[in-house]
Design a protein around this nucleic acid. Sequence first.
DNA 1: ACGATGATGAAC
DNA 2: TTCATCATCGTA
Length: 176
Amino acid sequence: MARKRLNSTFFNRKTLIVAEELLGKYLVRKSGDQILSEMITETEAYTGGHDLASHSSKGRTKRTEVMFGKAGTIYVYFVYGMYYMLNIVTEETGYPSAVLIRGTQNFKGPGILTRSLNIDATLNNKPLGKQSGLWIEDRGKIILKSKIKKAPRVGVSYAGPIWANKKYRFLLKELH
DNA sequence: ACGATGATGAAC
DNA sequence: TTCATCATCGTA
């Protein structure tokens, strides 16, 4: 089957489009001599500085700086004293948006996912690719719109009702 | 329903 | 420098 590594062109588009199209793509992690690939089944879009659920709504800080970077850059942050969250920066450089990878076929939940794939803050601000040992492949799998469920993002009530209720979370209804 | 566990950012 | 909060998860 055809197998194409997604580059910055894929990620340099509207965040909602990228988040939806990442469903069915394969997250590939190469660390040491082992390589794992997992089909992405759940994502969330954080659409820019105006999005009150996005870290970037705080403006440029040490933590959010990476979100202003080039599309396809890895944004990993540490939360709840235990878990790393994996995001991919989207849209034009200078526009602070990203997609959170929330789950794959075998790993449910963003914290479990990163733990299982050995993803931590050392990957932060690095580009997806062979160099970093983390990239995403299109393996030609077709995802029908009818198989995609849209829902509010998880754990963002602090953003207020307008932003917390937006259906910026994308899930595959059936896994196979 | 809640505790583990530490970085973050806002307030002081 | 303190303090509440947090893009979570397992146990209850």
